[in-house]
Design a protein around this nucleic acid. Structure first.
Lengths: 209, 209, 209, 209
DNA sequence: AATGAATGAGGGTTCATTCAT
DNA sequence: GATGAATGAACCCTCATTCAT
């Protein structure tokens, strides 16, 4: 039987595979390192038999990889849907900053993405490799921001004199800065004030005048 | 014997321990995951016997942790020394951007730091925990930037109306954005142009007018 | 799964555990020291995989401990059954002496028990500790002899003027003396003659007149 | 250099070797199993360097074996000297019983001997083997009792109708019984009463009428 | 002679994977 | 398809032994 990849259509994912994915994501969010997850831990968390995992995957690595890729794809889709729902750049930025605050406690989502994107390990290479496969381009973070900011630019909400890619990275990095600040303790600036500063910085740099 | 922690003074590190640290750093830079490094791989890379590692450390985890903490401490000290050498904010920013370009190939240094700092895993918690111990505050990245930017501000090179901590995080995130862009393929903007944009963005936002 | 203790009911011992117990006993009887048995030696002797042992026990020590405790329990039960089958004190003594002769070659059974009971090592402490647990009192050697000799006394076969406990220890030690003599080389007295002397000594001291 | 055997004359034992022997004996008395003693534990206890032990012995086994053999030799010599000092059989028996009581707390001396004599392990075989070497016969327990009881018999203190070897084993076993009883808890007979019974039993069986 | 840092063979234990049920 | 008992390769760690000082 041909095994799962994490790139399947949502509706084509068998229930047991879905349970496995959720279990992996949950364990990683709880602080386990993807590289040291044990198959027994995954299948127990998923509530299925250990042998069953091997009906759908060839190896432990494939299970974890599939789950991470699936999660990133899902998170990216949700993020794009949410951003598209907002018609104005400033609302999109607000949404992103609010999401970061929400993530502060359950350090998951998109935070994980950044972590994996800055990683240099073998595991991460494989995630990158798989993400570059086939039709996955659609779900990569850079592409996503490019599309969203591209539309904003066409609507005339953004400065026209800066290259799109610069704005993509700069916006991303400011969000990231807020993310790190939100999880940092002992800051001399209160978080709401920091949020305001970040928001203002973004608007000052990118918004059309 | 009392075992190593990674927080020792440079001159107090026994040669074998130094070899172990270098080996761990080299292996991680080559793409190994800290969580899956094998003791035999480390000691072979270090050119010493496997048992010798256990003369200085209690467990594999301690070896890797010690090496990472040592490396972060060392990298932070070097970075601060280099930044202090430069008298003007704009030279400091140039230095940081040049370093990022140099790191592009050997994805180590400071890039690793960011990765580990955004991690949520058990290993990362232990790094954080050890970094918060004793006199290590001195070497934490946030503190480092605070000191350097603090001096710049006193010299009147920076805007006085923004909180220091905001500038710390914002500067850090812009450097990070450039770092990710430098390692990204298929960018529509050439890297030198990107560098210029990042430099200009930083100056526009922070430099005293 | 909850792991084995050596105190389980015979019928509740899984086959693999039984194989492990037999293997340990066989290896000890062949002269291996319980403290230096290797797990691989045990599982090879048992004809099962090394990992399987750890499905049922937490550590090597637990395997060996479980086997020894099981063996002592089993040996004590068999011994009591055999002694109860004999209706007269003199037949019981004869049985014990015959058993010793039979054991001479396969130095196991009861001989081992004595050895472990006179030991002062950590391992021995653990055996004692486990034997004192729960319902194990029933299988301890002193208790066993007390019950058997107690019945003999009630039937009027033994002297009434000696305390039961003295007879228990004295009988036990005489049997032991014969045991050591049987394994000793270069004796000036032939074994059958020795047996007769021991038998006579026991009868003279304990039998009702 | 020729290494130590444990059979050397007391005056020929170098101080470091003596320290090693004492350390081994002390560790065994404290409950360590001879088979699992670590060289580092022995040399630390002895207060000498680890390498030094190998100046005098070829292997760990030799150190432990040498120490045990030395100890048995010494204990046997002391025992024989003490027994020879006593002129009457009844005083000799009293001395043995008193020794057992004294040993009750520091479970060492002679108790250990019994343990090793009933052992069936590889280590024990080696002790036996070494004891059978050369002039060591002199120090074996059976021989010792034979000499002492032989003299008693010549002096007419013992029955003439029993073979010497039977008396040797029987006396030994009765002493052993008292030894085990002394270390047993929950006895229905008080120890002094037990001592009296054992003493009387010995006298009744062996003393000339 | 005495030392103890260095070593690596060896053994305990884990855990990914298989396969009979 | 689903399971989990069984497996053994692989890996961490210990510790007897060596040898340069």
């Amino acid at each position: 039987m041909s095994k799962m990849t994490g790139l399947e259509e949502y509706s084509l994912i068998p229930p047991k595979v879905y349970q496995l994915y959720q279990a992996v994501i949950r364990l990683i969010e709880e602080g386990s390192d993807p590289a040291t997850l044990r198959v027994s831990a995954i299948t127990e968390e998923a509530g299925i038999g250990k042998g069953t995992a091997y009906e759908y995957f060839d190896s432990k690595e494939d299970i974890v990889l599939g789950a991470v890729v699936y999660q990133m794809q899902t998170a990216a889709m949700e993020l794009e849907a949410e951003l598209s729902k907002r018609e104005r750049f400033q609302d999109q930025v607000s949404y992103l900053l609010d999401e970061v605050s929400a993530c502060k406690t359950q350090k998951s989502c998109f935070f994980k993405l950044v972590h994996i994107l800055t990683d240099n390990s073998e595991f991460s290479s494989q995630v990158h490799h798989k993400m570059n496969e086939k039709a996955f381009e659609r779900y990569r973070l850079v592409g996503l921001f490019r599309r969203v900011l591209g539309e904003d630019m066409e609507r005339g909400e953004l400065r026209q004199d800066l290259p799109l890619d610069y704005m993509v990275f700069s916006l991303g990095s400011r969000i990231l800065a807020y993310m790190v600040a939100a999880s940092e303790e002992g800051l001399q600036v209160e978080l709401p004030r920091m949020r305001e500063l970040v928001y203002r910085g973004i608007m000052d740099e990118f918004a059309a005048r």
